[in-house]
């Protein structure tokens, strides 16, 4: 059974066993506009909760991508580097960013569930 949670930096995280898949939310892509460049963390690197773990750029500006939990990067989605427009098309599914072997499952508890995030996104864009 997998669990999907959301961060205040507009990332989503899906946990299956001790492997977390992380991407940015649809709401984030709507705020960014057309994404034209993606940079991902290095495979094998260790990332810390709320630390930067990549970059997305729209035609307008660059934005950091943060990791909502700590862990080791075990997989990258090269297809969004080759064609960043995929992130706008399917942000919360096929356009995931990276997978982490997570360090501490309890970090998931600090994140929002879908309803909480939807409310947060609505308020933060108002």
């Amino acid at each position: 059974m997998s669990e999907v949670k959301f961060s205040k930096e507009h990332e989503w995280i899906k946990l299956e066993g001790d492997i977390a898949t992380i991407g940015i939310t649809k709401h984030a892509t709507e705020m960014l506009g057309d994404i034209v460049f993606t940079e991902l963390p290095e495979k094998g690197s260790k990332v810390e909760k709320d630390g930067t773990a990549g970059v997305v750029e729209s035609t307008k500006a660059a934005s950091d991508v943060y990791t909502p939990v700590s862990g080791e990067v075990v997989d990258l989605n090269q297809s969004i580097v080759d064609d960043p427009s995929k992130i706008n098309q399917d942000p919360e599914n096929s356009a995931w960013f990276f997978k982490l072997k997570i360090k501490d499952k309890s970090e998931m508890d600090t994140l929002m569930n879908k309803d909480e995030y939807d409310k947060f996104a609505k308020e933060s864009s108002a």
Binding site: G33, D34, V36, T59, K60
Partner: peptide
């Protein structure tokens, strides 16, 4: 700055 279809 843009409309609904976006810059690209």
């Amino acid at each position: 700055i843009q409309y609904s279809e976006g810059i690209v």
